[in-house]
């Protein structure tokens, strides 16, 4: 029987089997499994990490959503919760952790700093938002977001997972091999995004305006 027919909600189940057989789509079954056990990477950056811990404790209890199993190693994690200010010095580490996570993987930017630099955006050592390097699935506003806001963000992620289809997801797509690999930025005189190497060289060659341009 093909997938199409399985999906039909009004498929007739013989009466004597109705209490032992349920019919659903493969997508829905797969997504149900994924969304109910999103294991976050145990990874705190700054203030937001404390609210992330608070969300795990008794009053808020994120375990209700299958997200309590924090894994310190990226190899066992499904979701990276970027909880705090991303600094230039830390960024290569974050990118490396992201690259080490197995697919399927999700990134949640928690708080103002991870979403766009927040109050520290103007700082010389601050990356204005993790989305300059990693593909972010969910942004959670707040400084820091309350645990309720964090949980609301996680539920949004679950809703996003619910809409996925095995046919289309990137990690089963043969053409897009390593499509999600992010090249490591390097720490030179400043943080250098190696994807922009040529552009950076061109600008800095002609820019006598550099210091004045500021």
């Amino acid at each position: 029987m093909d997938n199409e027919k399985l999906s039909l909600p009004n498929y007739d189940i013989p009466e004597d089997m109705q209490d032992v057989v349920a019919i659903t789509t493969l997508d829905r079954l797969y997504n149900w499994g994924r969304r109910s056990s999103v294991w976050p990477l145990m990874f705190g950056l700054a203030c937001c990490a404390i609210e992330m811990i608070a969300a795990q404790t008794a009053r808020y209890d994120m375990a209700r959503f299958g997200m309590e199993v924090m894994r310190p190693t990226p190899r066992q994690a499904d979701m990276m919760l970027v909880s705090g200010t991303v600094t230039k010095k830390m960024l290569p580490v974050i990118v490396r952790l992201y690259n080490q996570m197995p697919e399927p993987k999700y990134v949640v930017a928690m708080g103002a700093c991870a979403s766009g630099g927040g109050p520290f955006k103007e700082g010389y050592n601050v990356v204005a938002g993790i989305d300059k390097f990693l593909p972010v699935d969910i942004y959670i506003p707040g400084c820091p977001p309350t645990p309720q806001a964090l949980i609301a963000g996680m539920i949004k992620l679950q809703e996003k997972i619910d809409k996925e289809s095995i046919k289309k997801v990137r990690w089963y797509n043969k053409e897009k091999k390593d499509g999600n690999y992010v090249p490591m930025p390097i720490l030179g005189p400043d943080l250098i995004d190696v994807r922009r190497n040529a552009e950076i060289r061109d600008i800095s060659a002609k820019a006598a305006v550099l210091k004045e341009s500021a």
């Binding site: 005189p189 800095s204 060659a205 550099l210």
Partner: peptide, 9 residues
């Protein structure tokens, strides 16, 4: 970008 590099880098 938040980037400040010496000339000719």
């Amino acid at each position: 970008d938040n980037l400040n590099l010496p000339k000719g880098f």
